[in-house]
Design a protein around this nucleic acid. Structure first.
Lengths: 291, 291
DNA sequence: ACGACGTCATAAACGGCGCTTATGATCGCT
DNA sequence: AGCGATCATAAGCGCCGTTTATGACGTCGT
């Protein structure tokens, strides 16, 4: 007996007709007729009665078919187990913009080297998107720019990074070695409606040290849209230091902010998906972060 | 994926060694090695690690093997269901000597072909034994030589057959084209005490057409014992015509009887065992008998 | 009553699969 | 270094499972 035979009789029972069942199985009708005959001979009993209108299971056939369907389902589970292992050996790592800087890249590379059987897949998100993606199961772990709502997740801060101001080349503040937040008070500032208000206010340093509110410039969804508009002089932006290296455009100037709270990046994962793969990645990230 | 592959990997896991597993599966070791390789390629993952000491399941392989063992067990259940039905689907057909001649054989063959799920088992009985066996439930149906007591049974005459006289080769009547019953009056006649008196008298044509009684020869229990003694000249016997064909011994002569009532054979079954199987067999016998 | 249609069954032919034998590669042990 | 045990590869071949072609049978509509 082979699975092929069990799949055949299961399909025949479902369709009630050798012709249609054959089509569904991508074999010819005589092939199915012959296979059924040999299966019945092998079992020593008739599974189907033949009628001009099609076939009907015999009483004994019904029991055989029930058992056959279970065997087919059990075999499909073998394929599913294998698929899960093939697919489950994928670690989806979420991030936005430059993520955790070099740490993001080094962590993925190091983990991939230690686990060649695992495919580490980077997944980029728009502003604040990596936290939602993690919670919705679109990624397995994420480098999350704080502040972020990580309810239902576990996280550990693994990176801090000074902030800088992004200016168009030639801006009056572009040649400075550093500027304070208040010095940028009058400049329109890029913002986004994609992220939660707390995220936006944190990035904008709102309220400012002197108690004033920022001047809001154009809104944008992601880092490329933001930098395009800064480069053309529409506004300035606050960003992590690594962005200067990752998006080193000739028409942009990056100047350190002297008094802006540094960015903290957390590695986060869902509490109910604390798998060995995820734990292993977190271990690698912590190792690299402590060097 | 086929069951063969699942049985192979299950056996490999059990033996931990391709050579021993191959022996247990009655295939050669290279065949198993090749089959395993193709199975792993089909699944897209390695089920076993190979070592000089044998094979060991990988972590993923363990899960595949667990699922494979379940699928094999489920498939074995299909065979077990079939076996249970086969064991229950037995039709025991009783008869004596040549039964209803060719009809007996053709009926069993035709019914078996139409019902592969049923095992049709022939059961031979000594003289008159098939009627008692039927009533006692030793058989499901029987080709009964009449006359017979079929109280509690249903029956239908499905065969008639001329009678002949069995003579030792060289007997004074052996060369005749036909003889009358009265011409055999002086010859000792084989008889049996196994069957009812009515049966014995019918077969002996007692009383004879001229009112005389037969000359009783040796008694016997079955056809072989009878023919042995006829061949050695101890007596003659009356028999159905089919017996000449079925027991064509060189030391016997069969001569038609001109005035003996033909044998009538009935298909009989117990009235309280009017099952679909029995009814089906009766239908087949009637069909063939009417051809 | 007959022809058309739908359905299952059989036959012959053939591509390819799953096995065989022969043999090689590798590792561990002596 | 040689031997034995184990897995892997290659070439060849028998036979299985499929195909196309066609037949048998029952039902339905005309």
């Amino acid at each position: 007996m082979e699975l092929r035979q069990l799949r055949y009789v299961t399909a025949i029972a479902e369709h009630g007709n050798l012709g249609r069942a054959a089509k569904s199985l991508y074999v010819s009708q005589p092939a199915l007729s012959y296979a059924l005959k040999r299966f019945e001979a092998e079992l020593g009993l008739r599974v189907f009665d033949r009628t001009p209108a099609g076939v009907e299971p015999t009483a004994a056939g019904r029991e055989v078919l029930r058992a056959a369907a279970e065997a087919v389902a059990a075999a499909d589970l073998v394929a599913a187990v294998a698929e899960r292992h093939r697919a489950g050996q994928v670690l989806r790592v979420g991030f936005e913009a430059s993520g955790a800087g070099e740490l993001t890249t080094r962590a993925r590379a190091e983990f991939a080297a230690r686990h060649p059987e695992v495919r580490v897949v980077p997944k980029r998100f728009d502003w604040g998107g990596e936290a939602d993606a993690l919670k919705q199961g679109q990624v397995d772990v994420a480098f999350v720019w704080l502040p972020a709502d990580l309810t239902g997740c576990r996280s550990v801060v693994i990176h801090t990074e000074p902030r800088v101001v992004g200016l168009p080349r030639g801006h009056r503040l572009a040649g400075r070695e550093a500027v304070s937040v208040v010095e940028t008070n009058d400049e329109p500032l890029m913002w986004t409606d994609k992220a939660p208000r707390a995220w936006v206010d944190w990035w904008a340093v709102n309220p400012r040290p002197d108690g004033s509110a920022p001047v809001w410039g154009p809104q944008n969804d992601n880092v490329e849209e933001m930098l395009e508009q800064v480069a053309e002089g529409a506004a300035i932006c606050f960003a992590p230091q690594s962005m200067a290296a990752y998006y080193a455009r000739p028409d942009l100037a990056w100047v350190p902010l002297t008094d802006a709270e540094p960015l903290r990046v957390a590695l986060a994962w869902r509490a109910n998906a604390d798998t060995p793969l995820v734990k292993g990645f977190a271990r690698v990230v912590r190792e690299l972060a402590s060097m």
